[in-house]
Amino acid sequence: MRKLEIYPPIMNACGILSYLSVFEHLEELGADVGAWIPKSIGPREKQGNENPVIHFNGSVLMNSMALPSMSPDDFEKELREYRGETPLIISHYGETPDDYARSVARFDKYCIAHEINISCPNFVPGEKSILEKLEPAEVLREVRKETDKPVIAKLSPSDNYIGIAQQIVDYVDYINCGNTLARGLEIEPYSGRAYLAGTFGGLSGEAIRPITTRMVYDMYKSFGNRIGIIATGGISKPDHIISYARAGASLFQIGTALHKNSTFTAFFLRNIWKDVEEILKAINVKSIDEIVGVNFVG
């Protein structure tokens, strides 16, 4: 396993904040993360779903962005102009294993690791989901040939994640638990139309944290000795990071909680890890690695 050495071990979740200029601005304001992840890059320019792309029902957030993406050429232009100091992890999606492999090869020099999105539950109505089109093992095998940097596979708690992980465990260094939970539907009662233009949407935020925590725990029990685990889903307080670490995660991504203005977002990303370290000190733990997957007794 190739270890992803970043400090602090927190990142934005892919699809949140999305653009290099946003990352640069947050850095100027003092945000402190181990890496930034730009919006997933696909093989060609794509618009994604029409608005509304998000729906918050008071308890859970749904989104149906469906992977809007600029073209790889435009993306590379922005990468060349990136002035931030924080390293990048690049997220890829594609329609064929070759799409992924080419994208990984092309952008290898701009990043410290690759995240392979094989689980986005959202797609434009009429299309197929990524997993309906692709064999995960084939994708990751092709990707592995193109890079010596850490490879992260992002799975969703609503996939058969243990089954998929078994097929890909030899080709990846990390598994990200996980993508949004697939897929919810809410109907506007008076018109009979869905609240989302894409009809169905992936669930995220605080409400799904118990489910991703379970996914982290399952993954750690099955593969914890071979790969690292990234926890993504509903982290909005330092406590959530400690809990995820106890379940087995060593890296953490923050998504829905970053929906505030830049000053607040930067404050949040500057302080959340400091607060984690304070808590660790208070419970006599020197480093988070000491509690990863070992302190949970059920």
């Binding site: 699809g15 904040l17 601005h25 792309v53 929906h259």
Partner: peptide
């Protein structure tokens, strides 16, 4: 141009400000 309207997706950024 906006999508989420609440600071999540980043599409409305102008020189990094959402």
């Amino acid at each position: 141009y906006m999508k989420c309207g609440e600071g999540l997706c980043g599409i409305c950024e102008i020189s990094g400000r959402r």
